[in-house]
Design a protein around this nucleic acid. Structure first.
Lengths: 300, 300
DNA sequence: CTATATATGCTCATAATGAGCATATATAGG
DNA sequence: CCTATATATGCTCATTATGAGCATATATAG
């Protein structure tokens, strides 16, 4: 039973490949800032194997961590008329692993409003809030107005402590609707951040949201680090992903309490400041527990 | 650029539709215990809209909550040779909403080892552990043996307090590898639980895992309840999904502290025991916050 | 020798969680 | 009416987790 030509659907894989170097998260990109992508290879048994094989072929080293993100299929997500289904993947690589001619782009260049490590970006106060307020006031009726106000206050709260770093996708969609990103097409007025082709920036937003959520309950950061690292490097990497500053001592307490790392015996040297112990990820934790904790008041 | 006939790939949607009635979680099924499924309709703008429209067409009432689960594409997941990509969805419906000729099957019939509300099921001690131990001992080398032992002790821990209800998929895969589920084909010896066609039981395992994780940080249970309910009904529903007993008073404290419900003023009557207040879900919480909490030691 | 930059150890108040005691108010059945 | 039984609800208390911050140690840079 062959599909009719009319209903032919192309399936492609899109990979959001992330690396962090010196506290800067990068996105590995193909031509013209597009995400690396390829056709679904029928030769591979599973999608993930297909992606790994394809990445190797493309000259990237082996991907460290790979996870399926989401399957995108809105009509008109690429060119008009044609429907392409894209299966998005999130992959993490070591800084050393990347390179090899693959271009890379700092992700906060595409999402300048997401980096709050040095306080809220000025762009929020100077451009985003005024534009969103105008958009809210332009709502057709008062119900819509209230709903827009609500969404704005959650995505871009006035109180900086209420900033929820996980809402990357909601924020991107809000900015889209308000015509503040170039991808919104003819509705776009002022355009914020570096645009990407097709719906790729949206896919990246999905990846950022997933990654920011995941680092809290799964030890995936280590996939971005070299085999040995200091606790400060670890913290810097987490901060780079989350776009937030963390309390140093408490961060260490958390990491140690969870038994995520073990001392290697080695120390840093040659750098300014007191030498730091070099740690390694305790790979065993991946086996030891399936997940982290609960939130339900279990009874025993 | 039309796809070559040889690489034609069928895309279908599979829905895991869940309802809970009287503390029993059900799966709505199509013919022969298969999951309801249909072709990807190119007429709909997004996948989710397609699924909702299709469900309505099939005689189900509108789906309450819908979320994309995973895209399954292992070769040979259905019949041999042909490759079908399935986009799995999880949907929740009210008990009242379902019915209408759609068959339903209690999910613990398919996963009898997952219901720990009355303590660990006897099947674990009598059948599963002996078989898994034999499987472990049949490992080709000692490294594989150690790895199998590790996986077993996480999936089916000796200490009941270490039972992690979220590991539904890991457990299913373990049982598959050990040949304890019928879907494993010629490798299957003793077969546990009611099998389902193709890889549908695996898709359901994915859905259960997702749902068990999700109820902890998103108020999705309410999609399974009528508009008004008692706190006990709410707790029973959560317990049914999690397959665990919860501490009653602490459960209530949690629910109230989070402001998830509000009193309606009405009370139950006619049933044995002291009448209970009827509560309603505060829909506003969906707007109020994007997610729940953090786990990173943020600094302010 | 001093300024500067990190690394590490520890304390303390407050909030969240796990367990359990006690009391209130219905229905069911003699 | 009285008693057994089934829930509903209020409250306490020990333990743990979290958020903030003080103090001290040990390098490099000049």
């Amino acid at each position: 039973m062959k599909p009719k030509a009319a209903s032919a659907i192309r399936i492609e894989l899109n990979a959001v490949i992330v690396a962090v170097e010196d506290s800067v998260p990068y996105l590995l990109t193909a031509d013209g800032l597009a995400l690396p992508s390829g056709p679904l290879e029928t030769a591979h048994r599973t999608l993930e194997q297909g992606l790994r094989a394809w990445a190797k072929l493309k000259g990237q080293q082996a991907l460290g961590y790979v996870e399926q993100l989401y399957t995108f299929a809105d009509r008109g997500r690429t060119s008009v008329g044609e429907r392409a289904v894209s299966i998005g993947y999130l992959a993490l690589v070591h800084e050393a692993t990347e390179a090899q001619g693959a271009a890379r782009s700092p992700w906060y260049l595409h999402f300048p409003w997401e980096d709050h490590r040095d306080g809220a970006p000025k762009i929020i106060g100077s451009l985003i809030m005024p534009a969103l307020t105008a958009w809210k006031n332009a709502a057709p009726d008062s119900a819509a107005k209230r709903e827009r106000a609500e969404r704005i206050s959650i995505a871009f709260p006035a109180d900086p402590r209420a900033w929820n770093e996980e809402l990357v996708l909601q924020r991107y969609e809000l900015l889209w609707e308000a015509g503040l990103v170039a991808e919104a097409g003819k509705n776009a007025k002022n355009t914020l951040g570096l645009a990407m082709p097709y719906d790729h920036r949206r896919i990246v937003a999905t990846a950022m949201a997933r990654l920011r959520a995941k680092i809290k309950y799964r030890p995936v950061v280590f996939e971005l680090l070299p085999p040995q690292f200091t606790l400060l490097q670890l913290q810097n990497t987490v901060e780079a992903l989350a776009g937030l500053r963390l309390h140093k001592q408490n961060f260490r307490r958390l990491v140690e309490a969870q038994g995520l790392v073990e001392e290697t015996g080695a120390m840093t040297s040659g750098i300014s400041g007191r030498p730091a112990k070099l740690f390694a990820f305790r790979r065993q934790v991946l086996q030891e527990r399936g997940t982290a904790g609960t939130k339900l008041p279990r009874t025993n």
